[in-house]
Amino acid sequence: MFFTMPWTPTYAFPHPLARVPQSAGYWLSYILVDLLIWWGIRGHINNFRKNKLNLPPIAYFSTYHGSISHLPTGYMWSPHVVPKPNDWGPLVDVVGYCFYDLGSKYQPSEEFVEWILKGSPPIYIGFGSMPLEDSIKTTNIILEALKNTGQRGIIDRGWGDLGAHSNIPDDVFLLVDCPHDWLFPQCSAVVHHGGAGTTATGLKAGCPTTIVPFFGDQFFWGERIYQKGLGPSPIPVSQLTVESLSEAITFMLQPEVNSRAMEIAVSIQNEDGVGSAVDAFHRNLPAQLPLPTPPPSEKDEGPNPLQWFFIQIGRVCSLPCGS
C-alpha cells in the first residue's frame, strides 16, 4: 500500500483527520478514524468484492485487525519533512516524494513571462480546488496583505474563483492553470491550502510556506511546516484576515526561514522517491503468494468486547450529524 498521509497508528502524532490535543490519544485516533470510515463504506466495498471481484466479504476485526499495522505500507513524503516514527516497524517505509514532471512541457504566455521578469520574485497565493464562501472578500484580503507587505503577488484563480470580480493592480498577476513545478521556482514564497502534493512541490522549490487549511490532512501538513520552521503557524481559512496574512508573509520573508526552506529543498531534490517506492514494493513481495483463506462473513461474526466498544463510540460520534 502507498499513501500520501499517515494511516499507520503511532504515538508520534495524531491521525491527520483527527484533531487530538493530547499525545495520549494519538495512537487511538488512528483506530477510531479507520473504524468510522469503514463503518460508512463497508457495504460498498463488500458489494464490490462480491459482485465484481468474486471475493468473500471482509470482516473488519478478524481480517483487517483494526489498522494497517500488519500490512506493508509506503508513505510518499520526505523523511526530512516527517521522519519515520520509532514505533513503525520494518513493514513501513517512508520512501520520499514521488513527483510528476509537468513543468518541462509547460509553455507560459509571453505576458506572464514578461510580468515575472519585470520585478522581484512574487508571492504565490492559491487554494486549488477548495471552495470559498466569499471569493471577493478573500481576494480583497489577499490584495490588502500584499499591499501592506510591499510584495508582488500571483493569485491562482482556482475553483474558488479568486480575483474574478475584483480590480487587480499591476503588481499582482491573476493566473489560471499553471503547473506548480514550473511556477513555484519563480516565487519567493507560497500560500496555499496544504494539499500533500502542493506542499511537496513548494518545499522542493525551496519556498517558505504558509498553509491555509480547509479540511482533512491539510491541518497536518500545516503543523509539520510550522514545526520545521519553514513557515508560520497554519491559518485556518475561517481565520484568514488581512492582519494574519500580512504577518504570515512577513514571517516567510525572514532570511533564516528562506535558508531553512532551501536546505530542505536540497535534501528533497537529492532523494529518489520513486526508486525507493519500487524497492520497498519488491522487498515486501513474498517469495510465493499464499493461497487465500476465505474470511468469515461479517454476518456470522458476532462482536467481541473490543468491537462492541468501538461500535458504541461510532454511534455516539454519529449523533451530532443526525445519523
Rank of each mutant, 00 (worst) to 15 (best):
M1P: 03
F3H: 08
W7L: 13
T8Y: 00
T8K: 07
P14E: 02
P14V: 03
R19Q: 04
Q22Y: 02
A24R: 07
A24L: 06
G25Y: 11
L28I: 09
V33I: 09
I37R: 06
N47T: 10
F48Y: 14
L53D: 05
L53Q: 08
P57N: 07
T63D: 15
Y64Q: 06
S67W: 02
P72M: 10
P72I: 11
T73K: 06
P90M: 03
Y97D: 13
G103W: 10
Y106M: 13
S109Q: 03
E111R: 07
E111I: 03
K118G: 05
S120Q: 14
P121D: 04
P122C: 07
S129N: 09
T139A: 01
T139F: 03
L143T: 13
N148L: 08
I154Q: 03
D156M: 12
D161S: 12
A164Y: 03
V176W: 15
C178F: 05
C178E: 02
P179N: 11
H192Q: 14
A196L: 05
A196I: 11
T201H: 00
L203D: 11
K204I: 01
P213D: 13
Q218D: 06
F220G: 05
K228C: 11
P232G: 14
P236F: 11
V237K: 12
Q239M: 13
E243S: 14
E247H: 08
Q254F: 07
E256M: 04
N258W: 08
R260E: 04
E271V: 08
P295L: 08
E298T: 01
F309I: 14
C317R: 07
G322K: 12
G322L: 12
